[in-house]
């Protein structure tokens, strides 16, 4: 599946289905750290019931007692993923929000497959949803419903939302921000770097559309802000492109200097290429 086909997949309305298709197509090779109980802590024994996995029968206990017991363990792990999804109006540009929804759910799905707990927050200028998942399939369905039902509108103001999320974040979590960083990036990075106090691993997915840098748009005399509706005049393609590139460079440098994992993604590049890079880097 090439980039174009991946982008085509984004047209599938069902978030769950399109995420699964993307995952099956491209992440089949990625090892999801399958749960084998090695990292799971022992919880209790219970009697075998029809349908239980034979591998989980504790044969030693059977020899001791003559009864068939199944070994149960807690699903909890030490890691938790906190996903922050920007749903401001600017995310509507070029289909960024649909991409962001899919990307967010991909992480939730992977997380869920690993039996990791996850928290997801959807925000614009205030926090719309902040939910900590339970376990099992229900949690993932709930997340899919919450994320897919959200419409991108409102302005970008990440700071108040981050403060609320920060309160509920446990230590040593993965915090993933998916946003186009339309707000003042210094404020965002400051707020995110503040979360590192809890030894969190902060990952930023900075989404952009290539249309934002196209001559067709940047060469226009007037640009209307999608969030504020303000119109700015003057400037030309070269000047504006330079500003955008400079800003992206500053965000990257600022993020890296504060120990944040910064990932810039053009949504036109699909999922495979940027995420492969991301996972490869993380595996090192």
């Amino acid at each position: 599946m090439n980039k174009k086909e991946e982008i085509e997949l984004l047209k599938i309305p069902d978030l769950f289905l399109r995420s699964k298709l993307i995952l099956k197509g491209y992440f089949s090779g990625i090892h999801f750290v399958p749960y084998k109980g090695a990292s799971a802590e022992f919880s209790q024994y219970r009697e075998y019931v029809v349908g239980d996995d034979f591998n989980r029968i504790d044969w030693k206990a059977y020899l001791r007692s003559g009864k068939i017991y199944v070994k149960e363990s807690d699903n909890e792990t030490n890691t938790e993923m906190v996903l922050l999804l920007d749903s401001s109006n600017s995310m509507n540009f070029g289909g960024k929000f649909r991409y962001a929804q899919t990307l967010a759910f991909l992480f939730i799905y992977i997380c869920s497959k690993q039996n990791d707990l996850f928290t997801y927050a959807i925000f614009s200028d205030f926090l719309h949803i902040l939910k900590r998942s339970g376990t099992g399939k229900r949690a993932i369905y709930d997340a899919a419903r919450d994320i897919s039902s959200r419409i991108a509108k409102g302005k970008t103001d990440i700071r108040p939302s981050l403060e609320k999320v920060f309160e509920k974040t446990k230590e040593s979590s993965f915090v993933i921000l998916i946003s186009d960083l339309g707000d003042d990036y210094e404020k965002i990075i400051d707020a995110l770097s503040g979360m590192r106090v809890k030894k969190n691993d902060i990952i930023i997915f900075h989404l952009a559309s290539k249309k934002e840098e196209s001559k067709e748009i940047l060469d226009k005399n007037a640009l209307r802000d999608m969030e504020t509706k303000n119109i700015i005049f003057g400037g030309n393609y070269r000047e504006r492109l330079k500003i955008i590139k400079e800003r992206n460079g500053e965000i990257r440098n600022s993020s890296l200097s504060k120990g944040l994992d910064y990932n810039f993604i053009y949504i036109e590049d699909g999922f495979n290429e940027p995420l492969s890079k991301f996972f490869k880097r993380r595996m090192k």
């Binding site: 600017s90 995310m91 509507n92 540009f93 960024k96 970008t156 186009d180 339309g182 003042d184 934002e212 748009i217 226009k220 005399n221 007037a222 640009l223 209307r224 802000d225 999608m226 969030e227 504020t228 303000n230 119109i231 700015i232 400037g235 504006r240 500003i243 955008i244 800003r247």
Partner: peptide
């Protein structure tokens, strides 16, 4: 006139 996600940067 053209829509742009955020014009603050300019």
């Amino acid at each position: 006139d053209a829509e742009y996600p955020f014009t603050k940067i300019f």
